[in-house]
């Protein structure tokens, strides 16, 4: 597999979600290039409704690829403010463009300091190098 892309401007979870800070207390979430490569062809993404709340590392949805279902974990506690509905018809966007069209949810954070415990790009690169 080609080396996975780990953008320097994002944060990461150990469960392979990426996090983009889009405001003081809002983030955008998806799964990493490494994760989509490991899963291979994504065929189904199940996301929550806008308004749903999740605690830190609680499952917010699932993704299915080649008959493998994986849970998706909320990087921090918060409320869903937007969902990428386009993934219902085009789940392959997660493979094609994991950091762009393949984004999954936007979260309004309960406590923005929870982001401090996420992995840096360097930390995540080390994790997937193991």
């Amino acid at each position: 597999m080609a080396e996975a892309n780990v953008p320097k401007e994002l944060l990461y979870t150990e469960e392979h979600e990426w996090v983009e800070k889009t405001g003081d207390d809002e983030i955008k979430v998806g799964i990493t290039d490494y994760a989509q490569g490991e899963l291979s062809d994504v065929v189904f993404v199940e996301l929550p409704d806008v308004g749903a709340s999740f605690s830190r590392m609680e499952a917010f949805g699932t993704i299915e690829a080649v008959k493998a279902v994986s849970e998706l974990y909320s990087p921090a506690a918060g409320e869903v403010t937007e969902v990428n509905d386009k993934l219902a018809d085009d789940p392959a966007a997660v493979n094609r463009d994991p950091y762009g069209d393949g984004w999954m949810i936007k979260l309004k954070l309960q406590d923005p300091s929870e982001l401090d415990s996420l992995l840096s790009p360097e930390g995540y690169s080390e994790l997937i190098a193991d």
Binding site: A59, K67, A68, V69, S70, E71
Partner: peptide, 8 residues
Amino acid sequence: GSAQLRER
């Protein structure tokens, strides 16, 4: 035929 779940 097989199927998988990855959870925690």
